[in-house]
Nucleic acid binder design. Structure first.
Lengths: 200, 200
DNA sequence: CGAATAGTGTCTCTTAGACAATATTTA
DNA sequence: TAAATATTGTCTAAGAGACACTATTCG
């Protein structure tokens, strides 16, 4: 009999956890949310009848009061000694939320999120790389901004995600083909009012 | 007590499997290796005390006689109904081997590898995307070719991976900065002998 | 008006892509 | 010599990046 067709009960099974890097942009920096008072990302064990994304949503709802997130998978961490309590695989996830919606999490700049429990340093690093890749080609794929945005708003987000200053004129020309002008302008600030755009 | 700190025994655990797309290039096409006589990728259940990469290596050694591969993770498939035998997560992997080293696997062009068991169609698709991304910027990151190669060899590989013809001159100029000339030429074929290069 | 921000013109440099020409081998 | 392949020259078009200039608002 082919091994893959043997009954499932023949095998001891690992515990499977999810751990999630909740990312957001505030000011000019990329932040990650930690469990209040602890140097670790929010996580939970996968329950029977639940998907991985479901476990992520449950853990974020419980630990941070966050609802309606869309988790993306990063990597499975499987080092045999990664958890002193036993055999635990962790499926790392990333979730991106607007700055107002970080719930009870403690925000720390990703660059300062080191010395975390388990292999959570590596998860933060992978999550930062993941969001950087996402924002190379698209204006705001994770909806960090509301539906109407100016090029300045957008550039601030990209600068925080990218971790470097961007030239306003080059950035504008790169993003314009992917934006829809609303015909409106944002008034009230000093300076020439900026056009408002929608994501295309 | 924080849920993540409860004893592990409180939770029912899933079975965890690995399933691997073994990719290679033969002629002008990208192939994937299937279990002989079955419409599925080689796979196995994760055993206690074993890493995921270890399980991949074990399954490929057992089912195909393949040794010394370096598996890369793609994605965890976790649909609740993906396996009729019960609760099974599958961690999809990809492995790239030279055309001579495909062991006992049955090679099928990736474009023709549809209608496979479980969610293996999706794994093949992701594996093909993965290798395409790997070969965009590097001459031969997965060592599909031997240590000494001509630009023609390299272009054939890229054409197979990319699934499209490439211009010899443009390709040459794109790859040259990433290659080390050996000073040797390959003789014996018709036409001007081509320079031999090494990966830099 | 002056400061601040938005937006455009334009120049340079690099690169991709294509076509053509030259170079060197085998049969 | 003819056919085949390697390699280089060169032109064009597109795009990134930088700098300077103009436009429009608030205080």
């Amino acid at each position: 009999m082919d091994p893959i067709d043997r009954p499932l009960t023949d095998y001891p099974r690992p515990s499977v956890a999810v751990d999630t890097a909740v990312l957001t942009v505030r000011g000019a920096e990329l932040y990650v949310g930690l469990v209040p008072g602890r140097p670790r990302l929010p996580g939970a064990f996968l329950h029977e009848g639940e998907t991985l994304a479901g476990a992520v949503r449950r853990s974020l709802a419980q630990k941070a009061g966050l609802e309606g997130v869309a988790p993306a998978q990063l990597h499975v961490f499987d080092a045999l000694d990664r958890d002193s309590r036993g055999w635990v695989l962790s499926v790392a996830h990333v979730v991106v939320v607007p700055a107002e919606s970080t719930g009870a999490l403690e925000l720390v700049p990703t660059s300062a999120a080191t010395g975390l429990d388990f292999d959570h340093d590596a998860i933060v690093e992978q999550a930062a790389r993941w969001i950087r890749d996402r924002y190379v080609d698209h204006p705001d794929p994770e909806h960090l901004l509301g539906p109407e945005l100016t090029l300045r708003d957008l550039r601030r987000v990209h600068e925080a995600v990218h971790g470097a200053a961007l030239q306003p004129d080059t950035f504008r020309r790169a993003m314009l083909p992917r934006l829809e002008p609303t015909g409106q302008r944002r008034r009230g600030d000093v300076g020439k009012p900026a056009q408002l755009f929608r994501r295309r």
